[in-house]
Design a protein around this nucleic acid. Structure first.
Lengths: 238, 238
DNA sequence: TGTACATCAGTGAACGCGCGTTCACTGATGTAC
DNA sequence: TGTACATCAGTGAACGCGCGTTCACTGATGTAC
């Protein structure tokens, strides 16, 4: 993947200067997703990945920072859309919440590099749309609203302040799950869906069995992880 | 702090070669605690902070990595001890759990740099005692045991598998709290102790009011945070 | 139909920087005779 | 009591590296006359 034996890349024809821009975005996305420590990505790495001179990037982005910012914004929108799509078929508030949260967690675990850079605070804050602008509010807001819907359905009085805090707490719980699962894969983790289920059960007060069904529906073919850690324990560390 | 106007440092007298070692550890600890992005710490930064030639470090540590590892081990032990000390006066299992978890969370929020490097996955895994060796098990184990104690006290049957999962889930919740609180300080956060209280209430099934009292006892003089984000929003981010 | 010219899409070499690491060295201080 | 020597605790200069950024350039291709 790093060792590109392809011909040394032909310059794009006249009208198609935007092609390289797209390639830069694609390569950056690939590297952020692939690298062990995506926060160490450099401009020259991107240039090499595309097969272009480092200076060529400046024609399309002012900075590596601008390029990364662009890619992170795409990833953030992807995640937000994924959550909305997952929740779209929901008939009940609880279905909505479960679908939303399961989508969030699965995306985070399936995209550790992107998750870490986008939400895990691995990049300087000014590069991260979620931190720099209020973008995170949208994601958080959807969780708050969805959880509030569940509570309201159960006849609890609407209380914006409590709802906000409850949603925030649920988000932190899911984030903690994803973050530790990604960063400490050497621990013996139970199946992820069990953890999602229990978390949602705690935060909604609904029985785990009921939630488990909804989680299963949200992702029919949850991939099995080997017992005793989903990542093969990495380097030994002397 | 970076601008040391002190005299250019006198070489240590004969028998006291270990003095520099201690200074290196101290400076590294200070930098990991102080830097905005502690994961970018360099060997030369440490040397400058101490006021010594970069090469001098090699007499005491094989590597910047070895030095960081050493410091992180100290921090980890500090945290573990803090939790144990906090729990020591506990009369009831619930007191133990609350004291332990409050200590963990407060330490994490009071030491964002150390927390991020030690637990937040901001450093290459082989440097982090918690990842490289099973050290994290100890911390996790104490939470598991403490939570199991609370459940057992309520007459629930002992079930190691369930206990383990419950403890793990509680840890992930606390971690998520600390991590998001530290990384996204621009969000409007409720008082930290309220979040700790609610988390523990959810995970123990005990009423929030009861927990809140114990949290208050665990840290009598909890510092007030200004409403609307505990960190002054940082750089603007264009 | 031919040709001069403008433009587009990038290139290649160079710069200065901070980094980790090496290596021969220095100069104070304790110790053996 | 004096002195040669070993050691300790570090120094200073140098190395090669990868990095971000700049700048004058190149060469293909479309357009005006």
């Amino acid at each position: 993947m790093a060792d590109r034996r392809t011909a040394p890349r032909r310059r794009n024809p006249r009208g198609q200067g935007e092609t390289l821009r797209a390639e830069l975005v694609e390569a950056t996305a690939r590297l952020l997703a692939t690298l062990d420590r995506p926060e160490t990505l450099t401009l020259r790495q991107v240039a090499r990945e595309v097969g272009v001179a480092p200076a060529s990037i400046y024609g399309h982005f002012s900075d590596l920072g601008a390029l990364i910012q662009h890619v992170l914004r795409l990833r953030y929108e992807e995640l937000a859309q994924l959550m909305n799509e997952a929740a779209a078929p929901a008939a009940e508030p609880l279905d909505d919440l479960v679908a939303r949260c399961a989508a969030y967690t699965h995306w985070g675990v399936d995209h550790p590099g992107e998750y870490g850079t986008l939400i895990g605070g691995r990049l300087p804050p000014e590069l991260v749309p979620l931190t720099a602008h209020g973008a995170g509010e949208e994601l958080l807001g959807s969780v708050i609203a969805s959880l509030a819907g569940v509570r309201q359905r159960r006849g609890e009085p609407a209380d914006p302040e409590r709802s906000r805090q409850a949603g925030l707490l649920l988000w932190t719980a899911l984030h903690g799950l994803v973050a530790l699962y990604n960063d400490h894969g050497n621990l013996p983790w139970p199946p992820l869906d069990d953890l999602i289920t229990n978390t949602l059960s705690l935060h909604t007060g609904e029985p785990a069995a009921k939630i488990a069904q909804l989680v299963a529906v949200a992702r029919p073919a949850a991939p099995e992880r080997p017992v005793g850690g989903h990542r093969p324990a990495g380097a030994d560390g002397s």
